[in-house]
Measured scan of single mutants.
Amino acid sequence: KEQQNAFYEILHLPNLTEEQRNGFIQSLKDDPSVSKEILAEAKKLNDAQA
């Protein structure tokens, strides 16, 4: 469930490039146990690119 939530949120971050988004999603698939950390990174990058 946590992985699904992170997946959904990353898909809807407006400021990520397609490449960045795909990278985060691939990381989620590779290691779902760190989905919280991956989501935090994605949000940080999204904010930095706002």
Score class of each variant (00 low, 15 high):
2 E>M: 03
30 D>P: 03
6 A>F: 09
21 R>W: 02
26 Q>I: 12
24 F>D: 00
30 D>T: 13
4 Q>W: 11
1 K>Y: 06
38 I>K: 05
39 L>H: 03
17 T>P: 01
36 K>R: 13
21 R>H: 02
12 H>G: 07
7 F>M: 13
42 A>P: 00
14 P>T: 11
26 Q>R: 07
19 E>K: 09
26 Q>L: 15
9 E>L: 14
6 A>T: 10
15 N>S: 06
1 K>F: 11
12 H>A: 13
40 A>Y: 15
22 N>I: 11
41 E>N: 13
31 D>N: 12
15 N>G: 06
12 H>Y: 09
23 G>F: 15
3 Q>D: 15
15 N>M: 06
4 Q>F: 09
46 N>L: 01
26 Q>C: 10
41 E>I: 13
18 E>Q: 11
16 L>I: 08
44 K>V: 10
18 E>P: 11
20 Q>K: 01
29 K>L: 09
21 R>G: 01
17 T>V: 02
11 L>I: 06
30 D>Y: 11
3 Q>A: 04
16 L>F: 01
45 L>R: 07
27 S>P: 01
27 S>D: 07
37 E>S: 10
9 E>Y: 15
8 Y>K: 11
41 E>F: 15
28 L>V: 07
49 Q>I: 08
7 F>G: 05
44 K>Q: 09
32 P>F: 09
37 E>G: 10
50 A>C: 04
42 A>V: 02
48 A>D: 11
3 Q>G: 04
4 Q>N: 05
47 D>E: 10
8 Y>C: 02
46 N>S: 12
41 E>S: 14
48 A>S: 13
40 A>W: 15
47 D>Q: 14
37 E>T: 13
16 L>H: 00
5 N>Y: 14
21 R>E: 01
47 D>T: 11
43 K>C: 03
15 N>A: 07
47 D>C: 09
35 S>V: 10
36 K>I: 12
37 E>N: 09
41 E>Q: 12
5 N>I: 13
38 I>H: 02
40 A>E: 13
31 D>S: 11
48 A>G: 06
30 D>I: 14
25 I>V: 11
10 I>L: 08
39 L>Q: 04
49 Q>Y: 13
31 D>L: 04
23 G>P: 02
47 D>I: 14
46 N>Q: 02
18 E>K: 10
23 G>H: 08
37 E>V: 10
28 L>A: 03
15 N>D: 07
8 Y>V: 08
27 S>N: 11
29 K>G: 03
24 F>T: 00
37 E>L: 15
34 V>C: 06
45 L>A: 05
5 N>M: 14
24 F>H: 01
25 I>Y: 09
28 L>S: 02
48 A>H: 14
48 A>V: 10
50 A>E: 08
3 Q>T: 06
36 K>L: 13
5 N>K: 09
36 K>M: 11
20 Q>S: 02
12 H>E: 06
49 Q>T: 03
42 A>M: 01
33 S>R: 09
50 A>G: 10
8 Y>A: 07
14 P>C: 06
25 I>G: 02
21 R>C: 03
48 A>Q: 12
9 E>N: 09
2 E>Y: 02
38 I>E: 01
33 S>L: 10
17 T>A: 03
10 I>W: 01
1 K>H: 15
25 I>L: 08
27 S>L: 12
50 A>W: 11
13 L>P: 00
31 D>R: 09
20 Q>F: 02
37 E>W: 15
4 Q>L: 04
14 P>L: 10
10 I>P: 01
50 A>H: 10
7 F>Y: 08
16 L>W: 00
43 K>W: 14
48 A>F: 11
2 E>G: 07
33 S>E: 07
14 P>S: 09
2 E>D: 12
2 E>I: 05
13 L>Q: 02
44 K>N: 08
36 K>W: 14
30 D>L: 15
1 K>R: 04
13 L>R: 00
43 K>Q: 03
26 Q>S: 09
3 Q>F: 14
8 Y>F: 07
44 K>P: 01
20 Q>W: 02
6 A>L: 09
47 D>L: 13
10 I>A: 01
46 N>C: 02
26 Q>W: 12
28 L>Q: 01
17 T>H: 03
38 I>L: 08
24 F>C: 01
19 E>G: 04
27 S>V: 11
22 N>D: 10
48 A>E: 08
20 Q>A: 03
42 A>T: 01
38 I>D: 00
40 A>D: 06
8 Y>W: 07
25 I>H: 06
32 P>K: 07
4 Q>H: 08
49 Q>V: 07
49 Q>L: 10
11 L>M: 03
27 S>Y: 09
43 K>M: 11
30 D>F: 12
9 E>V: 15
13 L>E: 00
2 E>V: 05
22 N>E: 06
33 S>T: 13
33 S>A: 07
4 Q>A: 10
3 Q>W: 15
28 L>F: 07
44 K>E: 09
49 Q>S: 07
36 K>E: 09
7 F>H: 13
18 E>C: 07
26 Q>H: 12
16 L>P: 00
15 N>L: 05
11 L>T: 05
33 S>Q: 14
11 L>P: 01
48 A>L: 15
2 E>N: 05
46 N>M: 02
39 L>G: 02
31 D>V: 06
46 N>G: 03
13 L>A: 02
10 I>V: 10
17 T>W: 04
17 T>M: 04
50 A>K: 06
33 S>W: 11
29 K>P: 02
38 I>V: 10
25 I>D: 01
